[in-house]
Design a protein around this nucleic acid. Structure first.
Lengths: 333, 333
DNA sequence: TCGGCACGCGACAGCGCTGTCAGCCGACGA
DNA sequence: TCGTCGGCTGACAGCGCTGTCGCGTGCCGA
């Protein structure tokens, strides 16, 4: 069945197309009798306005905001998405999501597709180092916000967390509990968050006078299984770490699996970066922050820039905090 | 900056608008020299086709598929979403998500918005009992698929899991390990999944000859905190259960929190409905199924129905299986 | 009484694209 | 030589809606 168009509604109500349009858009200067006739006609015909055509006629941009995420199934990204969606809803906007699987090529092609769909703004967690595709879109006037990681060498609205501060706090926490040999299980080296966290880890260790902390750093923990392997590697070495800083939620899970599987694993202290739902139940001390809020802020920036393309670029840094739950307070042995 | 239109590209390439359109759509019957000129012009102007206008010109539906979910931040829904997205991508379609927060009113208004956006199909996890809004859309020819719960009294493509079979298996598992007093911590009573699972729980208990199992059933565990309260209630009663069947992932978490907090809690057997990432680490026996696959199948059905509106309605039931990890094998004491 | 003004309404021209149809040209078989 | 056919191209109408502009009516104050 074909959907009735505005023209049909107008005819049924005996008014011009334009008047019907006015009524359906709640514009003023329509007699209330007319208004009612049109509304009745629309209701009885089951009319639905065509937002696509309306956006086109209004001259371009849709009321859609695109969000390109690394992996929707990851707790962190879905928290982001829900924060974004909630904020957009306040402004009558809708979320169009797409997963890049952390693949820069896919990210670029998705960017293209969303732009062709004429999204009003774009929120991205940049996977690749090269954001040149984005750059030209920004130049073309598209409001873009990057979340979780900055876009290399680009002057763009950004929302990140205080990775260095969080890392430093985590290391300080473990040092305060007497640890010196602290292992670091990190994500893919090309990710900015990994770089920040590992660099600060090394800096903090150096300041604490721990020699050769580099040998305690492992990278590549993109999923729990990989993280488990890395943790096992660290723990199997001579002079194994007495504590581990797991640099993201996947790494934490993998590290815990490794500790479960080796003798004495329960004695190793653990601090995880990223809070997760069951950390409480598992008694895991973590560096926490508010991912939903992060999404909300990003959406807020996107909306603000749409409204005023010339506003100054904002760089939001969200705080982190150490949440102690037991695993990070175990003494070295 | 304004984006160049096809007309501008055509002019720059010295061809008609239509020829430029042909080139950009990869249609045949264009001389390769012409094709090249157009492509060069498009590239140098930074042209992006306007998918909105294209969809409109083609007569209506967009290449967007809407997904109305209960709560994006819930692991289960994001698994669904990622399955849907993956499948849609294969068909060159995009996902438009929206959260209803399990609120029937919001669900209805979101449905409306997505339809106005002229989505090509709609995938819904119905929150309310009343799906009449959907009904009229289906009548209007919109392909609709419901996931996780059937739409009451509607003949529509559906993907659900074998709730009854899973529940029965869980109960059988606990009975086999010697339990008789098995508690049931369930979701909101108005949810279909709750009704299925609790009904089958009672049936299985009755068949096993357990008297008055109704007293062991609690509902309202929409989040972990509520679930915790319900579990505490069950465990505080005279003749408390020696095992608990937690009817969804939130309920499982809450139950585990409750067990952690009471003396002897570690002796109570637990089986959870819904697998979750850390169930392995926590050693929780669960009734598992493939949520990503569920999403994939739903998307598949949506695509199939778009292609052929007259195909017979399909009701997919996905299997569940009990994954034993320790918590469900503890004997009663 | 009359100018002015606010209100209610409709005609019309697009928004950026695609489908249809018709025209032109060179090539090829008869 | 002519008819025909296939490859290539463009003119034009229209998808469903909104912005602009202009017209007629009734009411106000002067």
């Amino acid at each position: 069945m074909r959907r009735p168009t505005l023209a049909v509604v107008a005819q049924a109500a005996g008014v011009s197309l334009k008047t019907a349009s006015r009524v359906l858009n709640g514009e003023p200067n329509v007699a209330s009798a007319t208004r009612e006739r049109v509304q009745d006609a629309a209701a009885s015909l089951g009319f639905r306005r065509n937002a696509v055509a309306a956006d086109l006629a209004r001259g371009g941009l849709s009321r859609l905001v695109g969000f390109i995420t690394g992996d929707l199934a990851n707790e962190f990204y879905s928290a982001l998405a829900s924060g974004i969606e909630r904020e957009l809803r306040e402004h009558g906007l809708q979320l169009l999501t797409a997963s890049s699987d952390e693949d820069p090529d896919r990210e670029a092609s998705l960017t293209g597709e969303l732009i062709e769909r004429r999204v009003g703004a774009l929120i991205v967690t940049p996977a690749g180092a090269d954001q040149s595709a984005l750059r030209s879109e920004i130049a073309a006037g598209l409001p873009v916000v990057v979340v979780d990681r900055p876009a290399a060498g680009m002057d763009v609205d950004t929302v990140v967390i205080d990775n260095r501060g969080g890392t430093r706090a985590a290391v300080a926490h473990l040092l305060a509990h007497g640890h010196r040999r602290i292992g670091f299980v990190g994500d893919e080296p090309h990710l900015w968050t990994y770089q920040e966290r590992s660099a600060e880890f090394l800096a903090a260790m150096a300041e604490a006078g721990v020699p050769d902390a580099q040998r305690l750093v492992r990278s590549g923990a993109h999923d729990a299984a990989a993280a488990r392997g890395l943790a096992l590697e660290l723990l199997g070495a001579p002079e194994p770490p007495t504590a581990i800083l797991a640099a993201n939620n996947r790494a934490t899970v993998g590290t815990l699996q490794a500790l479960r599987d080796i003798p004495g694993g329960a004695d190793v202290a653990v601090v995880g970066f990223d809070d997760f739902e069951l950390a409480d139940l598992l008694g895991i001390t973590v560096v926490a922050y508010d991912a939903v809020e992060m999404g909300r802020r990003a959406a807020e920036l996107a909306v603000a820039r749409s409204a005023d393309p010339d506003r100054t670029v904002e760089q939001v840094v969200l705080p982190t905090r150490v949440v102690t739950r037991g695993s990070g307070e175990r003494p070295p042995r």
